[in-house]
Design a protein around this nucleic acid. Structure first.
Lengths: 209, 209
DNA sequence: TGTACATCAGTGAACGCGCGTTCACTGATGTAC
DNA sequence: TGTACATCAGTGAACGCGCGTTCACTGATGTAC
C-alpha cells in the first residue's frame, strides 16, 4: 500500500485534493478488486492525508464510491461511442462497439463490475432502470437495427437479439476477469461468434468466422 | 433479522448444530445478497446461539462460506444433470441443461453469484481452474458435440461455441438477478436465441424461434 | 434402583482491530491597511 | 514596504460500533458402579 508524499495545497487550490482522493480511491478499487476495500481511512492513507480531510470534499464514504461509478460510467459510454464512430459499415460498427465494450471491461475489471453492482444498490430490486443505462442499450439496439436495415442481418427482433448480445458480452467480460486462469479461446473468435451469431449477420464473410 | 428459539441439543446430537449454522448462514446470504453479511456474529444471532459456539463446528468464518459454496456447487451440478437426464433428443438435452442453469441462478441468485466470485478468491488470478468446475464445462461441450454428431448443429468447434453459450448464460443469469427492473424479453425466447443461435442448431423448427 | 461423576453442548466476558464520523485545533498564506 | 489578521487546508484525538477470536466457565445429561 504505497503512500504518496503530499504537500499541502496553496490557498485557493484546496479543490485539487478532491481529484487526488478520487484517483486514490479508484486505484484502491482497481488494485484490491473489492468495493469494501475503499474505506475512508484506506483512501486517506493512499492519498497521504488524514481521514477527516476527506469530509471537506465528500459528504461521506458512499459519495466517494458514487463518484467513481459516475466517472467510470461516463468513460464507458465514451469508449463505446468512440469505437463506433470510426466505422462506416453497419456490421463493422456493431462489431467495433462490442469490441470496445469487452476491452473496457478487460482493462478496468473492477470498475466495470462496480458499475453494474452499484446499479442494483442504487435502483433497488424493483425500481426501474435509470435513463443513462437504458440509453447505452438503445445505442446497441440501433446498431443492430442498422444492420437489419442494410440487409446484413436476418434478425426480426432487434431488441431481443440486442439483449442476447448484451448478456453475452457481460458474461464474457465478467467471467474473463473472474477466471483469468481459464483456457479461453481466441478473443476475436469468441467475439465474432457472439456478435455475428446472435446478431444473425448474414453476409458469408462474417458468418464464416 | 428473525432469531430462532433454540433448545440445547441432547448429548451426542451436538452435530445437529452444524446443519443449523449452515442453514442460517445460507439464508443470511440469500436475504442480504452479500457475502460480507455472513459474519460469525450475524449467523449466531440468526441461529439463536452465542458466537463462540460456532467454533465447535467450523474452524473460522471462512470455513462457513466455503461450506456454503461446496453445497451450492453440488446442488448446481445436480440440477443441471437432472435436467439433461430426462431428454433423449440431443438438442432438447442441450436446451434443458441450459434452462436448468439459468433457473438455478434465478432461484438462488446470491448462491450462484458466490459460486463464481469465490472461485476467484480460492484459485487466485493466475492459478488453473479446479477440476470440478472444468468438468461441468466439459459436460456442456459434450452436449453440443452430441448435436453436431447427430447432424443437428453446424458448429465446427464445440469448445468455442460452448464457451459462447456459457458466457451468455452467465451474463443472463447475473444481469437478471442484478437488474430485475429491466424490461427483459420473454425468458424462453432469449434462451432459445442463445442456445440455438450460438449452438448453430440447424433444424428449422429450432432456428425459427 | 440410586448416586457420583465425566462428558458434552454451549455461554459470557473480554481482547484488539479497523471502521465512519465528530470536534476542537493549528499553522501557513494571502490580503487589507 | 511592513505588519496584523482573516481565511483556508488540513490535523490529532476521541467516540461508539461490530467484528473475529480467546478463554475460563456452567449446567444438563448420560453412564458406571
Amino acid at each position: 500500500m504505497t503512500e504518496i508524499l503530499r504537500e499541502r495545497n496553496r490557498r485557493g487550490e484546496g479543490g485539487k485534493l478532491r481529484a487526488d482522493i478520487l484517483a486514490g480511491a479508484t486505484s484502491l478499487l482497481e488494485q484490491t478488486g473489492s468495493e469494501e476495500a475503499v474505506t475512508l481511512r484506506a483512501v486517506a492513507r493512499k492519498v497521504g492525508i488524514s481521514a477527516p480531510s476527506i469530509y471537506a470534499h465528500f459528504a461521506d464514504r458512499d459519495a466517494i464510491v458514487d463518484a467513481i461509478v459516475d466517472t467510470a460510467f461516463a468513460d464507458f459510454n465514451a469508449a463505446v461511442r468512440a469505437a463506433t464512430a470510426g466505422e462506416a459499415d453497419p456490421v463493422e460498427r456493431l462489431r467495433a462497439g462490442c469490441g470496445a465494450y469487452v476491452r473496457f471491461a478487460a482493462e478496468r475489471p473492477n470498475r466495470y463490475k462496480l458499475i453494474f453492482e452499484r446499479q442494483y444498490q442504487v435502483a433497488g430490486p424493483d425500481e426501474p432502470v435509470p435513463a443513462i443505462r437504458r440509453q447505452s442499450f438503445e445505442a446497441l439496439v440501433a446498431l443492430v437495427q442498422a444492420c437489419i436495415d442494410a440487409g446484413l442481418s436476418a434478425s426480426t427482433d432487434a431488441t431481443l437479439d440486442s439483449t442476447a448480445i448484451w448478456v453475452a458480452l457481460h458474461g464474457y467480460a465478467t467471467l474473463h476477469a473472474l477466471m483469468p486462469g481459464w483456457p479461453w479461446p481466441n478473443d476475436e473468435a469468441l467475439l465474432n461468434r457472439i456478435v455475428y451469431g446472435l446478431g444473425k449477420i448474414t453476409s458469408p464473410e462474417y458468418f464464416a468466422s
